[in-house]
Design a protein around this nucleic acid. Structure first.
Lengths: 148, 148
DNA sequence: CTATACAGAACCAATGCAGTCCTATTTAGG
DNA sequence: CCTAAATAGGACTGCATTGGTTCTGTATAG
């Protein structure tokens, strides 16, 4: 089915929520209630996003999380990467040449290209775009500009 | 990591192999040896590809599998779809509205578009393309033509 | 009639993922 | 100075999916 992990899906929703009020700090508990997702799960996601330097945090009473960058400067690819690690459709696409089909495998280079197309598609859409109800025109324009 | 299943990867390699000699029939055993993948696994993949009407088969001695269509008429999206089912990045993207985040979830429509971009990218590349050592120019042209 | 090869289903082990819990550490406020 | 609120960073667990196997049945060439 080639789907992203459910947690990644949650993460994008979280990030879009934060993108709607860029300056404000939100606690994990607050976001959990607002989105209807269990609190520990939300906390875990926020931690991962923090480690990827997509969020800023302050501790203590009244603390919480906020975007580390402007909404238009964070792409969907960034969020996916933060939760799932660097994206690589095929096993061999991320080094580690433990692929039994090495010799004469002409498809590898081509997978890289498909891979790249996907990455571009995800990079072309920012949180600012996602926060819009429907981004059709922006999206199409960005994609066509950025396609290799 | 957003990667396709290993089996799907095998399947594309299989299909590309068949695409190199479109008329010829290959037995599962033969393909297994040639690719260095265990025979039962290859057999299973071939069955799935057959059910998706991407392959033709004949039984009995000297039987085997062959492409059901010309190499340029089968896309990578077809192969991925045959093994992994219809592709849908997000859970909600394939109906079944059991998503707790329903109300006010503006990101859904946008995911659909990203989804669509991926589908187009996979559809733009055929087995004939994959059989080429490097498809750069063809790929770029096809992608840019077909982008919505 | 037998050996070859596909057809289809059931089955099993292991990996990975969603989700929880526990123990620091930091900070605002009384 | 002490407490409550909040993040930081782990370790741990149950479940679902996936990769892979095995078995039984059916068709066909020679």
């Amino acid at each position: 089915m080639l789907r992203i992990a459910k947690l990644t899906d949650y993460a994008t929703v979280l990030m879009v929520r934060l993108a709607r009020e860029p300056g404000r700090y939100f606690s994990a508990a607050q976001l959990a209630v607002e989105l209807g997702v269990p609190q520990p799960t939300v906390a875990k996601l926020l931690k991962r996003l923090l480690r990827a330097h997509l969020l800023a945090s302050t501790r203590g009473v009244g603390g919480g999380y906020s975007l580390a960058l402007a909404p238009h400067a964070i792409s969907v690819a960034d969020v996916v990467g933060a939760i799932e690690g660097p994206l690589a459709l095929t096993e061999c696409a991320r080094g580690k040449g433990n692929c039994s089909l090495e010799r004469g495998c002409a498809t590898r280079a081509n997978w890289q290209l498909i891979n790249h197309a996907l990455r571009v598609a995800l990079q072309a859409v920012s949180l600012a775009d996602m926060a819009r109800p429907q981004l059709q025109p922006v999206y199409v324009q960005a994609l066509q500009e950025k396609m290799p």
